[in-house]
Design a protein around this nucleic acid. Structure first.
Lengths: 143, 143
DNA sequence: CCGGCCGTGCAACTGAATTGCATACCCTCA
DNA sequence: TGAGGGTATGCAATTCAGTTGCACGGCCGG
């Protein structure tokens, strides 16, 4: 399971003619395994818990690199912390929606293909960020 | 002009049976006069330039208070800086849209009544944040 | 073997936002 | 008039996400 994720990560990286370093494979693997967007802090903790601790700066740089390669994207929550998740093929078009749970703070990517641009006045729209706030399935269930 | 904004600010505050302190009137006045959402830093600079410098912490607290009172709302841009603007009567419903210029960094409130909730799976949506990214009218014009 | 390139690691730094505590102000009640 | 409580303000120090500078180490092509 974990190895298949690593393989998958390696394949994704090498498909971009890029160097699949240990850190990159590890981080992308964690993002692939995650069901919600992960913060830098969470990824650090997860890497440490897995016995393969990462340097703080390395993690930042790998994340930036993944975003740059289009393999991941980042969302800034209202706690002004960036969270990262893999781009499930929806990279390139206008954008996609997120759901941020106000209770547990988790941030999910939604399959929604993003709302129609809702054209402004004389502005040039390039990307649409749609974030829903509320309670996630878990928190609603536990209430 | 400025005094009418101050009066307006005072009226808005007192309509909430709240104390219209100098700092609150001043900050709300600046927000009323602004055409785009203002960052804490910008408000500090503006207050200093106006000869009525505000303490950093006081400004934070006034802003928090204004948001709490429903007189203003805050948006966190992708530079993870919060920007504040007055609630133009659209407080209370689902939310409203913003436009963030990727070039000059300014953040505008749009009159759009926010997109339809775009229902997720088992989640309970309470608020919708829709932010468009691109170039604002000024930057498009200056290109 | 050398020199450049790139990824990694450590340490120090930045800048937004927060917290703690002391002070000043205002209103009420005696 | 003066004591007391609640609230707003100001200053200092701190937190925390994120960044920058620089040194080390592997790798590859001459």
């Amino acid at each position: 399971m974990v190895s298949s994720l690593s393989d998958n990560a390696t394949r994704l990286i090498e498909a971009r003619a890029a160097v699949a370093t240990a850190a990159r494979v590890q981080v992308l693997g964690m993002l692939l395994a995650a069901q919600s967007a992960q913060s830098h802090h969470a990824l650090m903790a997860q890497a440490t818990a897995a016995g393969r601790p990462l340097d703080k700066v390395t993690l930042y740089r790998v994340l930036d690199w993944l975003v740059e390669q289009g393999l991941a994207h980042s969302v800034t929550g209202q706690d002004r912390v960036r969270r990262f998740s893999v781009s499930h093929g929806h990279a390139g078009h206008g954008g996609h929606a997120h759901f941020e749970c106000d209770e547990c703070g988790r941030l999910f990517c939604l399959p929604e293909p993003a709302a129609p641009p809702a054209t402004p006045s004389g502005f040039e729209t390039r990307r649409v960020d749609l974030t829903l706030h509320g309670r996630c399935a878990d928190c609603t269930h536990t209430s």
